[in-house]
């Protein structure tokens, strides 16, 4: 059953009416209602607040990395483990084809339903997850395979075992290695880009965000708790931090915003996957046109150019 957020209620009513009209085989009513839906979508989604966008980024029906992998890849095989400690299931990796191109996809995976949420640790990786990502990224480099990173995490897991096994080191190592990985890399934030835990698979030749995804230095709740001394101020924190795809593109901190359906990826997974797939293939072709040194220099210079200061 679909989940609707408060501000999606008007959509919910029309969706229900359409479903009823379909049962009665009233095609005329369906047509009218679908036009109403289109108008309502325009009205509701054109003027979303930052906080509403955050809610969409975390929407329980939003497609996760595995959904995109299933929709986009063919002949895909999953690769497991960091070859050192374990297999962190909050990071997944597949080799296969997207549009006849050999690719490796590495993504953060949230679970759907209690059982899967626990299995995926709510999409919060431990160090071995980041080390698994790096191991497979190195393999992609060896075989000249492009990588698609799918970023979607509330953050790296804050726990005792994670600290014991070097959460900081694992993230730092990825930032370092991915900045100079020789193969072509494209990172897409598909939902939540939570801080260092997101950045650890978010350093790439092209960094894009789906329309309703966010990318932030700390969760809005965490920011509100620290700076406002009040976790309930998360709406203010969301707004102040400028974490939406639109804002980050304006600030020139990401390369592109992917044209996710206006109604949200959760209501039209196919269209969302198509938009992401097309972006990936087009970006890859643009990167094909550069030689390796050019591409690596461009990546390095882009990473190094970030900063707001005067002198």
């Amino acid at each position: 059953m679909a989940t609707y957020l408060d501000f999606e209620n008007s959509i919910k009513h029309i969706d229900e009416d359409i479903a009823n009209a379909r049962i009665k085989a009233d095609t005329h009513a369906v047509e009218i209602l679908e036009r109403d839906l289109e108008k309502e979508v325009q009205k509701t989604y054109k003027n979303l607040s930052d906080y509403q966008k955050l809610q969409l980024a975390r929407h329980p029906d939003r497609p996760y990395a595995l959904d995109y992998i299933r929709l986009l890849m063919s002949d895909a095989y999953e690769l497991h483990g960091d070859r050192a400690f374990g297999d962190d299931l909050s990071i997944i990796s597949y080799i296969g084809y997207i549009n006849q191109r050999k690719v490796i996809v590495i993504g953060e995976q949230k679970g759907r339903g209690t059982k899967n949420k626990l299995k995926r640790n709510f999409g919060m990786p431990h160090p071995e997850g980041y080390r698994k990502a790096l191991r497979i990224a190195k393999m992609a480099e060896k075989f000249h395979l492009p990588i698609l990173f799918l970023v979607d995490t509330p953050g790296a897991y804050p726990g005792i075992a994670a600290e014991e096994r070097g959460q900081s080191e694992a993230i730092a190592r990825n930032l370092y290695e991915l900045s100079q990985l020789k193969t072509k890399t494209i990172a897409v934030v598909i939902g939540e880009g939570g801080s260092g835990g997101a950045l650890a698979i978010g350093v790439a030749d092209r960094v894009a965000m789906m329309r309703y995804s966010v990318f932030s230095v700390i969760s809005p709740e965490g920011c509100a708790a620290i700076l406002w001394n009040d976790p309930a101020k998360q709406e203010s924190a969301t707004k102040a931090m400028k974490i939406t795809a639109e804002d980050l593109k304006k600030l020139n901190l990401i390369d592109d915003v992917i044209d996710e359906p206006l109604i949200g990826a959760h209501r039209d997974k196919l269209a969302a996957a198509k938009a992401l797939g097309e972006y990936f293939i087009n970006s890859l072709e643009a990167l094909d046109a550069m030689n390796e040194d050019e591409r690596l220099d461009a990546r390095y210079n882009k990473i190094l150019s970030v900063g707001a200061y005067k002198e």
Binding site: A172, L199, V203, I303
Partner: peptide, 13 residues
Amino acid sequence: STFALLQMSKTSA
């Protein structure tokens, strides 16, 4: 915010 987050990748790179 994200300007600060991206100093992590900047310094590491």
